[in-house]
Simulated scan of single mutants.
Amino acid sequence: MLYWEKHDHDKNRHSWYAVTFGHDLLGDLVLTRSWGSLGRRSRQHRKQPVDSADELRAWLQIIGEEREVHGYAVVAVG
């Protein structure tokens, strides 16, 4: 799991973004992205199948770069 947070104190906006990966019930490799506002129950998520470990690594690199561009900082890796 990778977990990012973004804090904008001036606008009182605090967001999180998480990426997990694993196998579904059929044994296919799946990447799951989840995001939402800190302190709120609502959240969004999206699952996408990946074909290989190399594709998974590429997606994790892309997502990490996108989060950095949007002002997020890594909080946890697990």
Score class of each variant (00 low, 15 high):
residue 2 L to W: 02
residue 2 L to Q: 06
residue 3 Y to A: 10
residue 4 W to E: 10
residue 5 E to V: 06
residue 6 K to W: 03
residue 6 K to D: 03
residue 6 K to L: 09
residue 6 K to V: 01
residue 7 H to L: 02
residue 7 H to T: 02
residue 8 D to G: 03
residue 10 D to S: 07
residue 11 K to S: 13
residue 12 N to F: 05
residue 12 N to R: 11
residue 13 R to Y: 08
residue 13 R to L: 13
residue 13 R to G: 00
residue 14 H to P: 00
residue 14 H to E: 10
residue 14 H to W: 08
residue 16 W to G: 08
residue 16 W to Y: 14
residue 18 A to I: 01
residue 19 V to K: 08
residue 21 F to D: 05
residue 22 G to Q: 05
residue 22 G to C: 02
residue 22 G to I: 04
residue 24 D to C: 02
residue 25 L to F: 14
residue 25 L to N: 10
residue 25 L to I: 07
residue 28 D to P: 00
residue 29 L to G: 05
residue 29 L to C: 04
residue 33 R to D: 05
residue 34 S to F: 01
residue 35 W to H: 13
residue 35 W to C: 12
residue 36 G to T: 10
residue 36 G to N: 10
residue 37 S to D: 13
residue 37 S to W: 13
residue 37 S to P: 01
residue 38 L to K: 15
residue 38 L to P: 03
residue 39 G to C: 13
residue 40 R to F: 13
residue 40 R to V: 04
residue 40 R to A: 07
residue 41 R to A: 09
residue 41 R to L: 05
residue 42 S to E: 10
residue 43 R to Q: 15
residue 43 R to D: 05
residue 44 Q to F: 05
residue 45 H to P: 04
residue 45 H to T: 12
residue 46 R to W: 07
residue 46 R to N: 14
residue 46 R to L: 15
residue 48 Q to V: 11
residue 49 P to I: 01
residue 50 V to A: 08
residue 51 D to R: 15
residue 52 S to Q: 11
residue 53 A to P: 01
residue 54 D to V: 12
residue 54 D to W: 03
residue 55 E to F: 03
residue 56 L to P: 09
residue 56 L to V: 09
residue 56 L to K: 11
residue 58 A to W: 05
residue 59 W to T: 03
residue 59 W to V: 03
residue 60 L to P: 08
residue 61 Q to D: 10
residue 63 I to T: 10
residue 65 E to L: 11
residue 66 E to T: 10
residue 67 R to H: 01
residue 68 E to T: 05
residue 68 E to W: 00
residue 69 V to E: 10
residue 69 V to M: 05
residue 70 H to P: 01
residue 72 Y to T: 07
residue 73 A to L: 03
residue 73 A to M: 01
residue 74 V to H: 02
residue 74 V to M: 15
residue 75 V to Q: 15
residue 75 V to T: 11
residue 76 A to C: 03
residue 76 A to T: 02
residue 76 A to I: 02
residue 78 G to S: 09
